[in-house]
Structure formats: C-alpha cells, structure tokens
C-alpha cells in the first residue's frame, strides 16, 4: 500500500506540472493587455517599465519557471514563516495579483474560510441525508419511497444550481422573507443571536448545494446496497438467525460503504467547482467569486493560481480515493 501511495504521489508531480503548463500557455495566449487601462498620455518607455514591474518583460519559459518557483518554493516558505514566525521568505518576490498589487495567496487565505464553511457544511449535510435515503430505497426497492427518491434525485441532477438557488431566493427571501438572500461574510458569531443569524444566512446556499450532492450520493449508495443485498454472505447472516437490523446495518452497509466513500472523496473537488455558481448566486465572497472577479478583471496571476489550486485539489482527491479504496477493501491490492 505504501509503495502504491508513493508511486502515485511521484506520478502526480508530472501531472500537476503538465497541468500548470497547460494553464500557463492558455493564459499566455490572452489577447487582453494589463496595460490597457493606463492613460494614453503615459509615455511608452514608462509603460515598458510598468510592464517589466509586472514581470511581463521576460520570455515565456523564464516567466513560467518564475511562477513555478514562486508557487512551489516561496509560497510554502511564507506559510512556514507565518506559522513559526521565522523569516525564510524575507525579500523574496511572491505571486502578485494585478488587481490589488498584493500577494495572491494572502487574498486566497482571506477568501477560503467562507467557501470552506458553505461548501463543507453542504457536503456534510448532503452526505448525512443521502446515506439513509440510499439504504432505505435499496432495502425497499421499487417501493413508493424508492420511486419518489429516484424522482427527487433526478431533479437534483437536472436542476442547475443557478436555477435552484434563484428559486429558493424567490420563495424564501422575496415572498416569505425568512432568510436573507445575500450572504454577509463580515458577520461575526459571538453569541446565540448572532449564531442564529449566521444559521439563517447559511441555510439557503447549503441546501442548494446539498440537493445536488444528495442526488448523486444517494444513487450510488442505493446501487451499492443493491449489489450487496443479494450476496451469499447476507444469506448466511440471515440463516445464522441474525436480526434484520444487524444484517442490513452491519453486514450489508459496511460492505456497501466502500465504493461510496471513494465517490465521496472524488466528489469533493467538483463541489468546489460547482460552488463557483452557488457563490455567485448568493453573493458569498469565497474563492469562486474571486475567480470570476479575476477573470473579468483580466488578473492573470490570480486566475492562474486559482485554476491551478483547483487542479491540485482534483489530483489530490483522486489519489486519496484510490488509496482509500485499497485500505477499505482488502480484496483490492495494487502491488
């Protein structure tokens, strides 16, 4: 297992480097000029100086190499400095956003908690709803509950978050006035009342994201339970005289969770992607909103870093899913 993990980790490095190269080359083709907003009265030689100050003067491969160094070498040093109060990174050039002229990673760190809160809570809520639904619809296959569950998860698949989000805003904010339609990220939770306010503003984005997650995971859970319910070991367990509860909740469930756990791990990065839209709908200023803002403002270092971070998440969670599969299921051996 350890061998496999190490082999996969070493394989992930070229993959990530290649993805970063693709993203870099794509952005390299950008026709947008970061100097377009500079007034025409500024003389060209000053413009050239400004261009160099943004790091645009050098040839392509040197800039790519610089970005790699900044992202993989200098940023971790900044992180270490920040945690242990050392000064490894002093005076070194970091990845600078063209919009704010401050380091990209500082802004990302500011925005990350909002995204993690909304997405993380939604994922947990979605899984907690999905698993019982999946178990029960498989156990009572083709019952009314199963049919309704199938229909609801089909809807969860089919209704895009930019409609379900707007739909709940119309009902619960505009018509009923129960919840705020805009997520206030400056809100500080310090007592019960402020906690209730926080809960109120989180309910809608979390439920919209959770609907999609529930739709996918409950389907997987159901299929996986159905695969196991007719296995010989289940018949053996019943023949031994074990209660139905123990048979389903222990023997079947534990075996059915193996593929579901890996699906849950694989789904985490795509949820971050989907959260881009949900954040836009509910005006959560997380990293998705940061990405959209950066794209509209032509802020290439920011776009590049954020896109690459999404890629890192995907590669990382693919790896985690593979390793988890091997750990959970002793029949699977990669060696």
């Amino acid at each position: 297992m350890l061998h496999f993990t190490i082999r996969r980790l070493t394989l992930a490095v070229p993959t990530l480097l290649f993805i970063s190269l693709i993203i870099f080359l794509l952005l390299e083709l950008a026709p947008g000029d970061p100097m377009a907003q500079v007034p025409l009265t500024v003389p060209p030689e000053v413009k050239e100086k400004m261009r160099e100050a943004l790091g645009l003067g050098q040839p392509m491969h040197i800039r790519f190499w610089k970005w790699i160094v900044q992202f993989f070498w200098i940023e971790p040093q900044v992180m270490i400095d920040w945690i242990f109060h050392t000064n490894f990174s002093e005076g070194k050039l970091r990845v600078i956003s063209w919009q704010t002229r401050s380091p990209v990673m500082d802004i990302v760190i500011q925005r990350l908690p909002q995204t993690l809160w909304v997405v993380g809570v939604a994922y947990v809520v979605g899984i907690l709803i999905a698993i019982p639904i999946g178990i029960y619809s498989a156990y009572r296959q083709y019952s009314v509950f199963d049919q309704v569950g199938t229909f609801v998860s089909m809807i969860g698949y089919s209704v895009p978050p930019f409609f379900s989000g707007v739909f709940v805003i119309v009902i619960f904010s505009v018509n009923l006035g129960w919840f705020p339609s805009i997520y206030d990220t400056t809100h500080v939770v310090n007592d019960w009342d402020s906690f209730v306010v926080q809960l109120n503003q989180m309910i809608m984005p979390v439920m919209v994201l959770a609907l999609q997650i529930t739709a996918q995971i409950s389907r997987f859970m159901r299929a996986s339970m159905l695969d196991n319910l007719n296995q010989d070991f289940v018949r053996t367990a019943r023949a031994k005289g074990l209660g139905e509860r123990v048979v389903v909740m222990v023997h079947v469930l534990r075996n059915s969770m193996i593929p579901v756990v890996t699906v849950i791990a694989l789904g985490i990065p795509s949820i971050f992607g989907g959260a881009i839209i949900t954040e836009q709908v509910f005006k959560v200023n997380g990293i998705g909103q940061l990405l959209i803002g950066a794209i509209q403002a032509n802020d290439l270092p920011m776009v590049q870093t954020l896109t690459f971070m999404f890629a890192v998440l995907i590669v990382l969670f693919n790896l985690i899913a593979d390793v988890l599969y091997g750990i959970l299921d002793p029949r699977i051996r990669y060696d």
Binding site: I19, L29, I295, L306, T307
Partner: peptide, 22 residues
C-alpha cells in the same frame, strides 16, 4: 486522465475570456 484532472469550469471560464475577442 490528464483531461479528467483539469478543473473544467474554471478552464471553460478562462477559455471564454481569452478567445472571445479573436
């Protein structure tokens, strides 16, 4: 595998940004 590891929605957004004008 490489394409599956690409963050698709961000990349789509970037492509829209870059190639719209040409």
């Amino acid at each position: 595998d490489l394409f599956l590891a690409l963050p698709l929605l961000p990349l789509l957004l970037v492509m829209m940004l870059l190639f719209r004008e040409p």
